[in-house]
Design a protein around this nucleic acid. Structure first.
Lengths: 245, 245
DNA sequence: ATACGTCACATAACAATGTTACGTAAAACT
DNA sequence: AGTTTTACGTAACATTGTTATGTGACGTAT
């Protein structure tokens, strides 16, 4: 029965329409600052229409984040193909930071927003993308450990992975939250990643060697201005233009 | 004129009363989840009373955080008295993590909550406590650098300080936001701090030496459960009991 | 001592929000 | 053709932060 298919397709299309409007607004102004009425108006519907497709505002946001998170996972997977496990660790770090600073609002919603106490709803879903990526990191650490990369005292791969995650997470978090504090003279993310990740790897390594130098892009020492993401060219699947005319 | 003094004293007392009620509620349930009406009810006043002493809800929260932040500054200052600059870095890290995990809500409000766009109000105040503490860190790094602690390639004290901050910040952030994710098997903060900060220092050091071993308290590998701060015994100055009977 | 002024605070209202009860009309299924 | 489903709009509701307005206590000046 093809009609059912078409119905489902139309339903998904409208769902995507809502998601797209929500994405633009959420990424532009953050979760709290966006109202459901505004999202609905943008696509010329009443607010009730949103509730047909999503349980509530938070659900809408989570679904959106989940969609875009695929991009993150893909980026990490690509980085995960690098061959020697030690070099892979560097690539993973770079991919992580790049994603976070390119889509700071997403990162914020994923890793910087505490669960409201009623989040038993999807106790697994949330954080799971992060957890999955973390498993990748653990696996890489274990492989590197088998290669004898780390100092022999360091036997707990999970602890090492958590420490590495903390390092990169801290880096991007500071940029996202405090990146635009004026008199702070932030060093560039590339510089900091090299100092932080490089020194950390050196300190973890049995041979005292750091990371191979990362490919530099920016001439360093420019404020990141990550908080207001000016580039709204992100992950727009399907049509890429605003839909409300 | 002693009357004016008394009036001012009474005013401050009431202000403190509001702050105290707000503190309990904010720390218990977070900023968004607490209503002004609830705060007011707790001290048996109308909501308007709050506006006599504070500009708005956000102002109330900021004043509260500012108060408690003195504790943080004090803890850092104490740690800052340690003599060799290199050891001081370790102490600062420990003090930082201890504060953050003891008052996770405060930390959250300070360093994990993005500025709402209208924060030009006190563009300096916010973040300033963090900045001050950061200056302390920079100074320490500079001193250690003068002592020849770091590898000679590392000349940018500010970059090093930012990297170190990122590391500890990332550690506590992960604990606060994701500390209670079930199947994650977090290592203890002490363990992670030792791996992270120890390895980072080792990697930064010219002589490849790490940090002196940190004093251990917990037997390691216990989930921190930092998010729901069960201990509400914090910084209560004045009377320490609930006021609403 | 009496009048005046100030100010902390309460009452009640307002506007904006997320959410829902209810109706409706179109379209699918029988 | 009749029945049912369902996507959606209208209008309402409860809860929020915030404010306009009144008032009573109290300090101060006459």
């Amino acid at each position: 029965m093809s009609t059912a298919d078409r119905i489902e397709r139309e339903r998904q299309a409208k769902r995507a329409l809502i998601l797209e409007a929500a994405r633009e607004l959420f990424l532009e102004r953050g979760y709290e600052a966006v109202t459901l009425r505004e999202i609905a108006q943008r696509i010329e519907h009443s607010t009730t229409a949103v509730y047909v497709h999503f349980k509530d505002k938070r659900d809408l946001m989570e679904q959106m984040v989940a969609e875009d998170f695929a991009v993150f996972a893909a980026a990490l997977q690509t980085a995960a193909e690098v061959k020697p496990a030690r070099a892979r660790l560097g690539k993973l770090g770079v991919a992580y930071v790049e994603f976070a600073l390119r889509l700071p609002r997403h990162y914020q919603l994923l890793f910087l927003t505490p669960q409201p106490a009623d989040a038993r709803r999807n106790p697994v879903d949330r954080g799971t993308p992060g957890i999955d990526g973390f498993d990748l990191l653990v696996a890489t650490v274990e492989e590197a450990m088998a290669d004898g990369v780390f100092r022999p005292e360091l036997r707990d791969a999970r602890a090492i992975a958590q420490a590495i995650w903390a390092a990169v997470h801290g880096l991007v978090s500071l940029f996202i939250i405090l990146g635009d504090v004026p008199h702070f003279e932030w060093r560039s993310p590339e510089t900091l990643l090299e100092v932080l990740m490089g020194s950390l790897m050196r300190g973890l390594s049995a041979d005292g060697a750091g990371l191979p130098p990362l490919p530099r892009k920016a001439p360093a020492a420019s404020p990141p201005a990550a908080s207001p993401p000016k580039a709204n060219r992100q992950t727009s699947r399907g049509r890429g233009t605003r839909t409300a005319r």
